Computed example of a mutant assay.
Amino acid sequence: MTTQSLPNSSKRLWLAAIKPPMYSVAVLPIWVGSAVAWAETQRFHPWIFATFLAAAILIVAWSNVSNDVYDADTGIDQHKAHSLVNLTGNKPLIFWIGNGLLFLGILGILAISWEQHDPTVIGLILLCCALGYSYQGPPFRFGYQGWGELICFICYGPLALSAVYYSQVQSWSLTNLAAAVIVGLTTSLILFCSHFHQVADDLAAGKRSPIVRLGTARGAALLPWVCGSLYGLTLLFVLLGSFPLWTLLVFLSLPFAVQLVRHVQTYHDQPDQVSNCKFIAVALHFCSGMLLGLGFVLG
């Protein structure tokens, strides 16, 4: 059966399962880390950028696929029609597809480390993968204890940007770490927003997500502070001289932040209405990250 012959509802389920918008979390660390490296050293290696980007996409795909497998084990996805396990009815197949994606992604990072005769980059990415596994994988399942956002921040912020920056110039940068805080923050915001519509399922599976712990009303009240910190930190780093003035382009993403806050505060306790807030968070993450990197390039 071809994709064209699938009913529209099936197409939507498969697109929701594959999660194309979520791959911005793979793109942004590569873009911003490379942009900071260029701004500070005027050095840029296109093949490393392209290899790292492809590897990052494969590793994020592994994370998404394996999370469906591990969620199927706990039963938290029993009402999730767009789970890959539920769509295929073949959990072992999805498990091994995920492992294959991870293997290919790690091969790409190994190629970079091999070329540089330096294990630093592969070491950082393996640490990212280990933390990513601990988020949902047994016996850890730290995401069920409410630690998912912190893991997400560390992996897609300081660890990922440090690996990318190092892959370009084989050194370290405090400015890059400052940029990593902003990228990690907006990445964690996506995960935070994904919990608002699934409180009942999380409670039933014993998952103590931040929204389960806080409640949807207090979670919605926290959003303006989280979004505001994105712009406050950028302004602070500009005033301190760490970021070039051009990084204030990030403020052009402010409409997405306002839309996200208003949407969640209006519908926080209505799962069907609030479920799309994570896609607004993705738009904020992608737009702010692209503008941040552009600011470094122009600066």
Rank of each mutant, 00 (worst) to 15 (best):
M1W: 09
T2K: 13
T3D: 02
Q4M: 13
S5D: 14
L6T: 10
N8W: 13
K11C: 11
W14K: 02
L15D: 03
L15Y: 06
K19E: 04
M22P: 08
I30Y: 03
W31V: 07
V32K: 00
A35C: 10
P46C: 01
W47H: 08
A54M: 11
A56I: 07
L58T: 07
S66R: 00
S66C: 05
N67I: 09
Y70M: 08
Y70K: 02
Y70P: 03
T74C: 11
G75A: 06
I76A: 14
Q78G: 00
K91I: 04
K91E: 14
I94N: 01
I97L: 15
N99I: 13
G105F: 08
G108V: 06
I109E: 03
W114E: 10
E115A: 15
I122H: 00
G123H: 08
G123W: 12
L127Y: 01
S134F: 15
S134W: 15
Q136K: 11
P138F: 13
F142D: 02
F142H: 13
F142R: 13
W147R: 12
F153Y: 15
I154D: 02
I154C: 09
C155Y: 00
G157F: 04
G157A: 03
A163D: 07
A163I: 08
A163K: 07
V169R: 09
S171A: 14
S171Q: 11
N176M: 15
N176H: 03
A178R: 14
A179G: 08
A180G: 09
L185F: 04
T187E: 00
S188D: 15
L191K: 11
H195R: 10
H195F: 09
H197L: 01
Q198H: 01
V199S: 11
D202V: 02
A204P: 06
G206M: 03
K207L: 03
R208M: 14
I211T: 03
L223I: 08
G232P: 08
F237S: 04
L249G: 06
L254F: 15
P255F: 07
P255C: 02
F256G: 00
A257E: 01
R262Q: 15
Y267I: 05
H268D: 13
H268M: 10
C277A: 03
I280S: 05
F286I: 02
G289P: 01
M290Q: 05
F296K: 03
L298I: 08
